[in-house]
Nucleic acid binder design. Structure first.
Lengths: 239, 239
DNA sequence: CGCTGCTTTGAAGCCCTTCAAACCAGGTGG
DNA sequence: CCACCTGGTTTGAAGGGCTTCAAAGCAGCG
């Protein structure tokens, strides 16, 4: 059940059989959410974290004028809110963008892990730091990259992250979200995202249609985005 | 020496005398950096974390065309790179924007803490999650707030963060950085930041001159920025 | 007292937004 | 089986916020 999560962790560090078992034991109830369901609201008190088994989840913040900024996307194998273990309530909301299957991991069990499995605790700590690294890369996109590069960059990021858990190839991957969702990730209007997607298609780099990203030219796409996967910390030997 | 750091932690959770001592014991060499010194370069291997005693530090990423995005500012009492403990090398660089005094904390000592002081370890984990929360708020600013709100927002944030360690009042605080630095935080050009500062001054909200932020109307400033300090997790009772 | 780094101002232009409307596909009910 | 509805996509036209380019102003310092 938590196999994709283990794939993700093991792409970054060694996880012993004992630690794997501790994680498996921590997994609780499996829940299905429909697309478009907000299941954690900012500020709400939390006693368990959400491990995503399947689907796409977004962390987002709403502004008073109805605008929304998605601060990170999550894919299968990610904890959507491991940080709620130390924060206890979140500064953002969390929603399923597609139908999603998740498993709840009680904070009690995570606390046990910090007390009984220090190394595994550090690996989980690492995971939340990886989320922060993704936030930073998005800050760079939002602050300094133009719409075209920004859009190319997110497609590159998801290709790598989905690839780690076996859900993407160099040719593309399923991404059943809307252009509005994408616009909320990119800090753009959906109208402009639409125009950018058209240009990416016409440049024969990538195509985003009917819930699927089809990559025509991965090298070209990465070059346009100046994508450097270092921020995803995949080089295991360095840790 | 690490008093400001303890103030910061204790604004969020209780720290026992024993834990305090463990932290004090972890502190190593004190180092002075001049303004404008990059002391950690992205990718470089690290064996200790940097606790800021005095000054302003920036985490930043450079783009190939010479543009730069600062992803977070640090003030006295902050770890500038506690996350390097689990990441081992960083996806960004770190520089002193002002003359800075720091103390190095060896990762070995942090590892001891995770093994001997699980609660303190969780508090440190919390600290890195707080950094991530700040990243998220900056993503919202960069993605959805206009230049005026964005600038107002960062002044509000720093007022709170510096206030926690006794370095800001409701009337203002020292912030000896340049408009260029500010622009690199805000994803704007320094030219436009200059115009925005003029408008904030003319609206009698805040003045930024000769290294000092003078707040004329804190309520008005917060209202313009739609500043909600919840993301700084200061409500101790909820944890 | 001139150099240097930072700030300020102006003018022109572009990237992205806003507003509006048409198009399209899939699902539902008459 | 088609008309209708709904949510999402696409396109056009106009406008604005921020950038770019350029240059002047200013303060601190050797």
């Amino acid at each position: 059940m938590i196999d994709k999560h283990l794939m993700k962790l093991r792409a970054r560090d060694d996880i012993s059989a004992e630690e794997e078992q501790a994680l498996r034991d921590a997994a609780g109830e499996v829940i299905h959410y429909p697309a478009n369901r907000t299941f954690i609201t900012a500020g709400q008190e939390l006693s368990c974290s959400t491990l995503l088994l399947d689907g796409i989840i977004a962390r987002y913040k709403d502004l008073s004028d109805g605008q929304r900024q998605i601060t990170e996307l999550h894919v299968a194998g990610d904890f959507a809110d491991l940080h709620s273990f130390t924060l206890k309530h979140l500064d953002h909301s969390v929603m399923a963008l597609t139908p999603a299957r998740i498993v709840q991991v009680p904070h009690e069990k995570l606390k046990d892990i910090t007390e009984r499995h220090p190394h595994l605790a550090r690996v989980l700590w690492f995971s939340t730091n990886l989320d922060a690294a993704i936030h930073r890369e998005w800050e760079v996109s939002l602050g300094r990259r133009n719409a075209l590069q920004r859009t190319a960059h997110i497609f590159c990021e998801l290709q790598v992250r989905l690839g780690i858990v076996g859900l993407a190839s160099e040719q593309g991957y399923a991404l059943p979200i809307t252009q509005v969702d994408l616009a909320e990730c990119l800090g753009l209007t959906s109208v402009h995202v639409n125009r950018v997607l058209k240009e990416l298609r016409e440049r024969a780099l990538v195509e985003f249609r009917s819930g699927r990203v089809t990559i025509t030219d991965l090298a070209g796409l990465r070059s346009l985005a100046e994508f450097d996967p270092a921020y995803l910390y995949l080089d295991k030997r360095r840790r």
